[in-house]
Design a protein around this nucleic acid. Sequence first.
DNA 1: ACCTGAACACCGTTCAAGT
DNA 2: ACCTGAACACCGTTCAAGT
Lengths: 194, 194
Amino acid sequence: MPARPKTSDAEIIDATRALLEAQGRDGFSMAEIADAVGVRTPSLFSRFASRAALLDRVELALWAALRRELEAAATPSRLIKKPLEGLSAQGRAYRAFAKANPNGYALMFDPRASQTAEGAAVRGAALAPCLPGFVALVGEDKALAAARVLTPFLHGFVSMELSQAFRLGGGIDAAFETGLDAILSGLLTWRRSP
Amino acid sequence: MPARPKTSDAEIIDATRALLEAQGRDGFSMAEIADAVGVRTPSLFSRFASRAALLDRVELALWAALRRELEAAATPSRLIKKPLEGLSAQGRAYRAFAKANPNGYALMFDPRASQTAEGAAVRGAALAPCLPGFVALVGEDKALAAARVLTPFLHGFVSMELSQAFRLGGGIDAAFETGLDAILSGLLTWRRSP
DNA sequence: ACCTGAACACCGTTCAAGT
DNA sequence: ACCTGAACACCGTTCAAGT
């Protein structure tokens, strides 16, 4: 006779994500997660092999959430018609997501994440909503190369911002807009040149 | 009568840095550090307030090491005469440093670092060796803004590379060179325009 | 001033037993 | 199948005592 489930994988992942954001990656214990979902600590291990495995699932949930934000920021048709505007909007949405989930964002780029095939797929799919914009901006053959200029800038900027690396003052919002514009207009010149 | 010191702060920091690189941020214990320097675990706490404080010191040592690499990659006079070449060389040195110290590099941008005044100073000084290049490239008034385009790209690129974010194949070395060139030549157009 | 052994509280994880 | 209490090994940290 099975014991009645008191919680679910999804509820545990949500509770962990909330604790992560509130307390930081090592600011909470399995016991606190268990408390949050009304269960005793060992029960978590019948659903997740380890704390690390649970954090991996949280990370995938965050990548999926980022994907949704990017989709909401610009539709494919807008990206095709006005790639500069569309990609700028997605860039701002990307930064907003990182600033709204700083501890989660750090987890998403933590090199300790286990490299499962499913994980790689979810991570890879997260930036897919931007691809039509790159294709429209520089053409199909250069879209990947263009993505590998803009996305490192986006990640690097927000990562540095979150780790307080911009200490020389000056408007950080303005610096972000300047950088975004500079890179996008630079990519625009790729249309013709090799 | 003082007990003879068996080790030193510097030796402990070096041993911790080695363990960090070999085993990852939470792959080693205070006991292993103590073993490595020939001391018992509690002795470490008479020198460093906590594991976190010791990791902070390791982080500062890494920033200082990065600074030395950047200084070695291009002299101020070369940066002034040939800013494109000089900054490219520093960009490559930056990436090489990150790839040679992947776990250390992750620590340098870990948002958990304590924000001491000394720490901020050391971190801030690390990229100073690049400044003459930015001044030569775009002029004094735009140097900071230019740095806030290139350095996020550098950090973002190597951070994504280290967390295996470039899964769509294609030469990653070539992508780095392409991005570096695109951004530097884009910045070059700032010389005249506002 | 720096070292040590002993102790403490906490934590991730396992396991046998319950339903 | 999922839950639980009890137990285990390990870890960061404290402390009183040694020199």
